[in-house]
Design a protein around this nucleic acid. Structure first.
Lengths: 233, 233
DNA sequence: ACCTGAACACCGTTCAAGT
DNA sequence: ACCTGAACACCGTTCAAGT
């Protein structure tokens, strides 16, 4: 008889069946997200990972959308507080940049963030940080409040644009961009004079220069647009 | 023998099996979208509707995403040209409002528009219209070009926010809003002073007043933010 | 070339039944 | 109360085979 030091205790090598809790489910979901993307964060896959059946997860999580929202708030914890140096606009741009960068790593999460706005503690921290920076910049409170929404919508939507269905997403997006570029360059001067005249600049700019311009544009607008703005006669 | 004027020619009542073309597929897709929402616009369902197997559709459509993009451009045709009366800002707000309203009727389409930017003829028309209005307002060309992108991103994202999974989406969204409202109202004055101070205004405003403020804010920003804006020393 | 049946590899969610 | 096997009702996409 040969020595057989560690007999398998379960079917697989998994060290121990982890306790089934909301936390263990979310933690597993984050691990699967990091390793294989949100597409694989499914009830069935998570159940398999946790050595149980999909029905068991419904004791702790209402549905897939809620699960994805929980995952998002978890990742929001990795977006640090505002940096200490620089003027308030710079700092705001960097905070928003960190948020966007996190979402860019998981664009499908951005997509779901758009639909299921998070309300977890990490999300509140982000809002507080942005409000503090706008306050520091002297932006009137009402405009700051609505402005935070606009800034987060912009950042989230920018990241969501890069979401793809499956791994062939990059190729597909390239083809879409080519199609749009082709359409813009071939726009008739007669029917689409403005597009024809601006073809170059319409397609110009790096993603980061556009993002930076977007944030500055938003801030300039937020600073000087009052919520009701009744049309002066 | 009783008279039997119209014997069924096929299994179902369907008058005639329509020819399978890209157009008939897209037309069927639009019909299903209008009747039951984008969730039902699936390859399998369309195949059933067209009396064939799902595999047949792949001769005319690359994949589901491309199909949804084609549907979007089709609906874009219902967004009319710019109205003739009013000042350029008003008119721009109304054009963008019509675009948003169309997407609001099919928010899941907005979601997919965010990922798969359309490049069809109707989309080009919309861009041309917006560029013309910005030009009329004296907005510098480069800012107008990038601004159109920002305006469309805002409108699309606003509509996409209302996308839901299934018919229980409204209830789910209400619960999310309640959760956020609760979190905002219970924010600690010590850890989240700005949120606590601005709780009321953070949650205020009707969707339409916020949308209107958003467009005006964007326009104000676009008008006065130059693309490169090198930091002056 | 165009079309298709059948298969592959998945999904979310519910429910009756167990402990 | 918590957990689960099994089922229901779907998906997208591919491929070999037909016409």
């Amino acid at each position: 008889m040969t020595a057989r030091p560690t007999p398998p205790r379960s079917r697989r090598e998994r060290p121990a069946k982890p306790a089934l809790t909301r936390e263990s489910i979310v933690a597993t979901a984050v691990a699967v997200l990091r390793a294989e993307g949100l597409e694989k964060v499914t009830m069935r896959r998570l159940a398999q990972e946790l050595d149980t059946g999909p029905a068991s997860l419904y004791v702790y999580v209402r549905n897939t959308a809620e699960l994805h929202a929980a995952v998002l708030d978890e990742l929001l914890g990795t977006v640090g507080p505002a940096p200490a140096d620089g003027d308030w606009r710079d700092r705001l741009e960097r905070v928003l940049g960190a948020y966007t960068a996190m979402l860019m790593e998981h664009p499908s999460l951005a997509r779901s963030a758009l639909t299921a706005r998070p309300s977890g503690p990490h999300y509140l921290n982000l809002i507080e940080t942005l409000l503090a920076l706008l306050d520091e910049g002297g932006v009137p409170p009402a405009q700051a409040a609505w402005g935070v929404d606009l800034l987060l919508l912009f950042a989230t939507a920018t990241a969501a644009e890069h979401a793809g269905r499956g791994s062939s997403a990059d190729r597909a997006r390239q083809e879409e961009w080519d199609a749009l570029a082709h359409a813009v360059h071939n726009a008739s001067e007669r029917t689409h004079p403005h597009i024809a005249a601006l073809a170059g600049v319409l397609l110009s700019g790096t993603p980061s220069s556009r993002r930076s311009w977007g944030v500055r544009t938003l801030l300039n607008g937020i600073e000087r647009t009052a919520p009701s703005d009744p049309t002066p006669s």
